[in-house]
């Protein structure tokens, strides 16, 4: 066990955990930020996507020791009122079915638009390809990313 000082959604947090603990479980079990989801544990599904210094990362593969000093954003901190252009576009297109993967999808999309505000279809497909949606809402996800890019 060791103490780690983290900056999550703009707030300083301290946790006392094993250094190997992935951020996914630090967020979910220790900080009660459960919007970040567990899907596969091996960085293959994208359900656990968060932002580290603005980049989309898979929190199941990010040890807490590597997150110290970085600025971490989770779905809960993407916007204060749930009105980030990506979140709004997701609601406008009524994207979710079961909803489980969508926080990860949204975080990936938000990071994409941060770096590339006008992505082409191919850019969107490439960026979103790491996020599995078992319900198959991919066409709506793509449409929502385009809408969000127009409303940045």
């Amino acid at each position: 066990m060791a103490t780690f000082n983290l900056t999550i959604n703009g707030t300083s947090q301290q946790v006392d955990v094993d250094p190997s603990t992935p951020m996914l479980w630090v967020l979910r079990d220790h900080l009660d930020l459960v919007g970040t989801k567990f899907g596969c544990g091996i960085a293959q599904c994208g359900a656990c996507t968060i932002h580290m210094n603005g980049n989309a990362v898979r929190s199941c593969q990010l040890p807490v020791s590597a997150a110290e000093g970085a600025s971490i954003t989770t779905i809960e901190g993407l916007s204060e009122q749930g009105d980030h252009p990506v979140q709004k576009a997701w609601m406008e297109h009524d994207v979710p079915q079961c909803g489980y993967c969508q926080a990860g999808q949204i975080m990936t999309a938000a990071a994409l638009l941060q770096q590339n505000p006008n992505p082409s279809d191919e850019d969107i497909e490439n960026a979103m390809n790491g996020n599995i949606c078992r319900c198959g809402t991919y066409t709506r996800i793509k449409a929502a990313v385009k809408t969000a890019s127009q409303n940045l």
């Binding site: 919007g35 970040t36 809960e76 979140q87 997701w90 609601m91 009524d94 979710p96 909803g99 926080a103």
Partner: peptide
């Protein structure tokens, strides 16, 4: 629209895996 959409896109605990 999906009545739970707002909760889904803001990461609210909706699933039993989120329960504590």
């Amino acid at each position: 629209k999906n009545v739970d959409a707002q909760k889904i896109v803001t990461g609210k605990p909706l699933f039993s895996i989120d329960h504590k």
